[in-house]
Amino acid sequence: MKIHYLYYSILFLFIFSCKTENKKEIKTTETLELPIDSVKLIHANQFRSYSYKDFETIEVFDKNKKLQQRYLLYKGKNKPTTNLKYDVALQIPLKRMISRSTKYATFISLLDNVNNLVGFVGSKYVSNQEIRKNIENGKIKEVGNDDGSGVNFEGLVNLEPDAIFTYDASLYGGTSDTQQKMKELGLPMIICNETLESSPLAQAEWIKFFGVLFEKGEQATEIFNNVKSNYDSLKNLTASIKEKNKPTLFFNAWYNETWFMPNGESYVAQFAKDAGAIYLWNDLEGTGASPLAIESVYERAEKADYWFHASDWKNMNQLISSDRRFVSFKSVKNKSVFNHNKRQLKSGGNDYFESGVAFPDKILEDFIKILHPELIENKELYFYENLK
Rank of each mutant, 00 (worst) to 15 (best):
T106M: 11
L110F: 03
L110I: 01
D112G: 01
N113P: 02
V114C: 02
N115P: 06
N116D: 04
V118I: 01
V118C: 05
V118A: 00
F120W: 12
G122S: 13
S123Y: 05
V126H: 03
V126S: 00
S127T: 04
S127M: 07
E130A: 12
E130S: 04
R132Q: 12
K133Y: 13
K133G: 02
N137Y: 00
G138A: 08
G138K: 10
E142I: 11
G144W: 11
N145K: 15
N145S: 15
G148T: 13
S149D: 12
G150A: 11
G150T: 05
G150I: 01
G150K: 14
G150C: 10
V151H: 06
N152Y: 13
F153L: 15
L156C: 04
V157G: 07
V157D: 02
N158P: 01
L159C: 07
E160G: 08
P161T: 07
P161S: 06
Y167Q: 09
Y167G: 08
Y167N: 04
A169V: 01
S170E: 12
S170D: 06
S170Q: 08
L171R: 03
G173A: 04
S176H: 00
D177H: 07
M182T: 14
K183H: 10
E184Q: 11
G186C: 03
L187D: 08
P188Q: 00
P188E: 00
C192P: 10
E194L: 12
E194K: 03
T195S: 10
T195H: 09
T195I: 00
T195C: 04
S198Q: 06
S198E: 08
S199F: 06
L201E: 09
Q203F: 14
W206Q: 03
I207W: 12
I207G: 12
K208V: 09
F210K: 07
G211W: 04
V212L: 10
L213Y: 13
F214S: 07
F214W: 04
K216M: 05
G217A: 05
Q219I: 10
Q219G: 08
A220Q: 09
T221K: 15
E222P: 07
E222I: 04
E222M: 14
N225E: 15
V227K: 03
K228Y: 15
